[in-house]
């Protein structure tokens, strides 16, 4: 369905985050501007840290949406080749678009973006 055109300058808002303590340890968010090798290095470090803990179900999650989906998948493949079990989940997330105007209040509108979640099982 084609969406209606709204005037004003567009500000794209990220989807809502949970800010939980566990999220910090076992989740990595991939942006379209994230560098592939940089992501691999950061994730490997976090995976190592998670592996050292005594948690029961050790799963590391890499998330991405829209343009960054191929990057997330290639990260998944990288870890698959490193002999990790990798699961892929597809889904969609809701985001807000803000159309800002000079004098009047800005308008918010919803949009859905496809997303992917790669689970590296330790």
């Amino acid at each position: 369905m084609k969406r209606e055109r709204i005037d004003g300058t567009l500000i794209k808002h990220p989807p809502m985050r949970k800010y939980k303590v566990t999220e910090e340890k076992n989740t990595f968010f991939v942006k379209s501007s994230t560098l592939y090798v940089s992501a691999i290095k950061q994730i490997s470090k976090k995976v190592e840290k998670l592996n050292a803990t005594q948690a029961k179900n050790k799963v590391f999650i890499v998330k991405g949406m829209g343009k960054s989906i191929p990057k997330v998948l290639s990260i998944g493949v990288y870890f698959q080749l490193k002999n990790y079990r990798v699961e892929v989940f597809t889904g969609s997330v809701k985001v807000l678009d803000e159309f800002e105007k000079e004098d009047d209040d800005s308008i918010l509108s919803k949009r859905t973006v496809s997303s992917v979640e790669v689970r590296i099982i330790l």
């Binding site: 809502m16 809701k94 807000l96 209040d105 800005s106 918010l108 509108s109 919803k110």
Partner: peptide
């Protein structure tokens, strides 16, 4: 219910 609807309503 959708959280984003609440945000729009607050706005």
């Amino acid at each position: 219910e959708d959280e984003l609807d609440l945000i729009i309503a607050i706005k």
